[in-house]
Amino acid sequence: MPATDSRSTPAYAGRMPARCPLHIVTGKGGVGKTTIALALALRLSRTGARVVVAEVEGRGGLALAAGGPVGSKPAQLLPTRSGRLEGVQIDAKASLSGYLQRYYRLGFAADLLQLDPLVDFATRIAPGLRDILLIGQVTHLTKTHPGIDALVLDAPPSGRIASFLGAGAGLAELTDGSPIGEQAVSVMDDLRDPGCRTHVVTLLEELPVTETIETVAALRELDLTLGTVVANRCLAAPTVPDPLPPAPAGIASEQWSAMTAALLADADQANGQNAWEALLVHRTALAVTRVPDTDSAGHGLSVLADHLEGL
């Protein structure tokens, strides 16, 4: 990518370590968030880049999409023609261990982690602590692996994304002065870096569109930079002959009316999608990138990546 953006370089030169861009991908459950995160990573890797897709909370979607296990160290996820596409699992337990070692040099950290109760406890119950540890581990990856050119985060669903990404703000307030409070502040700084953008995946239907509008507003409230809204499973409007022709030879009239009814229903659905898209653009003032409903088998991911070219 040509370095035409003058905002991003000088402001941080000498003050912060060089870091790679971070794309956070969220969306309502069931809209195809993981697939879009993978397609985006594939698109980014096409320039020859090494791109890592990170999954948090062990949801397993990434392993399912890639057809193989995803470990705690970045490793190849899918074969690509150019560049590299890797996956990594960000786990709260490992993040806590990393955190204790990085900031406390706690010799007993390893022993501590054998105490599952503690880990459960500290990472589940303390408000925002688990989220801070997970995000901290992700932003750590953007800074400390010079070989990584871009990081794509398959983030928690949109119902939880604002509390996930905003955990730092809340925790910083509760823990003013304590070590985790400082960590929380630095995590929020990292997320507000211009190199970090959040994309929201949606379907052009009532519930996902409503949730997307709410999510965008909540993310703006947190001062996070928004990327694009990706509308998944878009239908191309079929051509509907007017008037509808009579049944051709060989097709019974009952069958023919079922076939034309299906055509009209799909045309209706495509029109409905256009209306939801218009509402989305109007309410979020963001660009909507439409991607088609692809056959999930075979080269579907590559087709999706083609459509994300503008991101």
Binding site: T239, P248, G250, I251, Q255, W256, T260, L263
Partner: peptide, 24 residues
């Protein structure tokens, strides 16, 4: 719809009928 019936239909269909068959 049987494939035989579709083949018969395709051989005689006009432009508009082809649109419906293609969607099918």
């Amino acid at each position: 719809v049987s494939s035989a019936a579709l083949a018969v239909a395709a051989s005689s269909a006009d432009q508009a009928q082809h649109e419906v068959l293609a969607h099918y």
